[in-house]
Design a binder for these strands. Structure first.
Lengths: 228, 228
DNA sequence: CCGGAATGTCACAGAACTGTCACAAATCAC
DNA sequence: GTGATTTGTGACAGTTCTGTGACATTCCGG
């Protein structure tokens, strides 16, 4: 499914601009202007990338960055920092602290989009078009095709996104809410049980009789896809 | 053989930086600071891509670009232009003149490399030979001919461009908007459903009864042409 | 100026997909 | 065991998407 991005920016106008542009590109976007809250949100939704203004209130960006890098759970999430023109020193310090790239304000939205895309490509090739395969299941996002054991499978749009979402997060238990956020989008208002139904449809589509079901139900928690 | 790239840049330091980076990636690089010379070199060595500074002396980049696009021999070589920050107008004019992408100075070498790679990846299929063939379909851009299984087919202009667009991008899902941009042109204002109609006409034209339809409909996403 | 070919839109029908529900089956807490 | 939760499953009605034929218009060669 589409990558989720967390925007940490306390200038409301700029924040809206970013959100709008990123959404238009198909990313899932959440935002906050507060560093402390940002750290919580990262843990909660595990975004695929973070856009972080260096000069937010309360907690300086660099501190947020440092703390994200310290936690093993979040250490690998790519961070794109926004700095004011001329703050050369900040930039260097930022990159040393663990930011992956920077953009100087003011910037063109298109450039920013390109940077974000580049970051994602680097951190998670699977999100930008490379094949995912998984035991005997093969999913190619570019051609939108799925095969199992060489045989081509037909999946509907939602089943495809769902399978992709799982294959990008192997061996992790995913709650129904996480799945809804990731596959349907943050602001969808859909019954959690609907996930069950689509899981069933996905299972039916990918499991030929006699084959192992790669999707494991975790009672009272959600579902997970196992590499066997 | 590795792709050859021509760098047109009159700032010696920047030119060296580019050359060094591109060489390190395995590209063959030649460079010049003069627009007129650039045109000669293009004819001489037929590079696979051109990196073109918009503000070189003698001949403005836009003029070089225009002249390259006018000559059928060089019209399809991808051009990446370098612009100064904030020259939004130049950028737009550049893209309209036929540049394929742009990078704003100052830029990170890494970003530039990514862009160049993307450009080459996009243009490659058409570079691999003048006529494209594909399963049993054969398309010759020069003579505007299409054959399937040896038998000559008659396609209208739009159908021809459409088929070519697909054959240059095999195994990829192409959205209706992408197809419109690629076949009709970025600034056309045409209903997305029109693509469906032309797809149908194309299918009718290339598929004899009993033959496999190489065009796959991907619901809620677009169309793709499959090999095999 | 004429006639055929090509093009862009539309409307409609059929196909595919979706979200919910109700009930059955499985699992859990005691 | 027994009742309470939680998940699997089939059905279904509504919605969205695509295929297709028709049509008015434009383009172009003669």
């Amino acid at each position: 499914m589409n990558p989720d991005i967390l925007v940490v920016e306390d200038d409301t106008a700029l924040c809206d601009l970013l959100t709008w542009n990123l959404s238009a590109e198909g990313y899932g976007v959440r935002s906050t202007g507060d560093g402390e809250e940002a750290l919580l949100m990262v843990r909660e939704q595990a975004p695929d990338a973070i856009i972080l203004d260096w000069l937010i209130e309360q907690v300086p960006g660099i501190e947020v960055c440092r703390r994200l890098r310290k936690d093993k759970e979040t250490a690998r999430i790519p961070i794109l920092m926004l700095t004011a023109r001329g703050e050369e020193e900040d930039r260097i310090r930022g990159l040393k602290t663990g930011a992956d790239d920077y953009v100087t304000k003011p910037f063109s939205p298109r450039e920013l989009m390109a940077r974000v895309e580049a970051l994602l490509r680097r951190s998670r090739p699977s999100l930008t078009g490379d094949n995912l395969n998984f035991a005997d299941i093969e999913l190619d996002p570019a051609s939108h095709r799925v095969r199992r054991g060489g045989e081509s499978l037909h999946l509907g749009p939602t089943e495809f996104k769902l399978l992709r979402y799982f294959m990008e997060r192997p061996n992790r238990v995913l709650s129904r809410q996480q799945i809804l956020d990731g596959v349907w989008g943050m602001d969808s208002d859909i019954d959690e049980r609907t996930v069950d139904v689509h899981i069933r449809r996905l299972r039916k589509a990918i499991n030929r009789p006699g084959e192992r079901d790669p999707i494991r139900t975790v009672r009272a928690a959600g579902y997970a896809m196992d590499v066997s």
